[in-house]
């Protein structure tokens, strides 16, 4: 399984906000176990999708010179849930951007319905730091070519969608 929890950016304003879509599908293995007979998108993976949206927003502001890691989720509230066939729209707004890290506030909507809202704190690491070898790469927003998601968005006719 690839650690991509957003499918495409639909809006991106550098240093301000980003919107990404996550299409929930029954072809995702975990949806069959979470829960049997009642498939809902796990909240933890929604947080990961929000963090990928916000992490790329923060990283892009600094021209990707830092490794951005999810450091902390001080606040998260789930108001409802998302089921297969739903398109979750994640919106992240940059609250704070400093040398040491940054903060975003985010929401997840299905249509007009608010599904979740959260605040996420990221820490910046210098990718050249030799001590980083010990850190689990899965923590990195930019691992596994996640940035390729910025390139997704050509329509069938070749037109730009973003």
């Amino acid at each position: 399984m690839r650690w991509f929890w957003i499918d495409r950016f639909i809006e991106f304003e550098s240093g301000s906000y980003a919107k990404a879509v996550k299409n929930v599908s029954l072809s995702e293995e975990h949806m069959h176990d979470h829960f049997p007979g009642f498939s809902v998108m796990p909240g933890s993976l929604m947080i990961e999708g929000l963090a990928q949206t916000g992490g790329i927003l923060l990283g892009e502001k600094n021209d990707f010179k830092y490794a951005v890691i999810l450091a902390k989720v001080p606040k998260v509230t789930f108001h409802s849930w998302a089921t297969p066939g739903d398109s979750l729209v994640y919106t992240a707004r940059l609250l704070d951007d400093r040398d040491e890290g940054g903060t975003v506030e985010c929401t997840a909507h299905v249509g007009e319905r608010l599904v979740a809202e959260a605040e996420i704190v990221f820490a910046h690491l210098d990718p050249a730091d030799p001590t980083l070898g010990a850190i689990d790469q899965k923590n990195f927003v930019f691992s596994m070519n996640l940035l390729g998601i910025l390139e997704v968005g050509k329509a069938g006719d070749g037109a730009e969608k973003l």
Partner: peptide, 21 residues
């Protein structure tokens, strides 16, 4: 440890000051 970073961000915002690392 990571909370200290978060607290620092919030204090700077709350008081509109810069606190050197």
């Amino acid at each position: 440890s990571i909370d200290f970073l978060d607290i620092l961000f919030r204090l700077e915002k709350g008081f509109d000051i810069k606190i050197p690392r």
